[in-house]
């Protein structure tokens, strides 16, 4: 099955097996993959909670609401196409991250954090 963008409402599934009626389960995964980020409370950053498939950006937000915020987890949802994420490569792990390991002065470990300051 192919995806086409027509009529201004984003990609829609096309082809003979268009998903509009109950059908026998077949391996079919043509909707793009999205990564989902949820903010649990105001003032906290969005956190990656998982991924999902959706036909377009709007439906991805919609599906994220059903899949990841059913139990009061969220006040805000971001979605981004997985393909649009640029990630660091495991091969570069050492040059990327190792240099910070021995620079203790970069870590704010010499401050005492008051007990009533959350999320530090």
């Amino acid at each position: 099955m192919s995806m086409t963008s027509e009529g201004g409402h984003g990609a829609v599934p096309t082809g003979p097996e268009v998903p509009v009626e109950p059908k026998a389960a077949t391996a079919r995964r043509d909707w793009p993959l999205y990564e989902v980020f949820v903010r649990g409370k105001r003032g906290i950053n969005h956190v990656h909670v998982g991924s999902l498939h959706a036909p377009d950006d709007e439906m991805a937000v919609h599906a994220a609401r059903d899949l990841y915020t059913r139990r009061n987890e969220g006040v805000s949802i971001w979605v981004v196409r997985s393909a649009d994420i640029t990630a660091s490569s495991p091969d570069e792990k050492d040059p990327m991250f190792a240099p910070s390991g021995d620079k203790v002065y970069r870590h704010p470990t010499f401050y005492e954090i008051p007990e009533n300051v959350p999320h530090m």
Partner: peptide
């Protein structure tokens, strides 16, 4: 606090009169 923990913290803090469990 690990960021991973913050989202699902809301589970513990959910108001008991707003249960969404099936």
């Amino acid at each position: 606090m690990a960021h991973e923990e913050t989202v699902y913290e809301a589970l513990d803090h959910a108001h008991s009169d707003e249960g969404h469990w099936a």
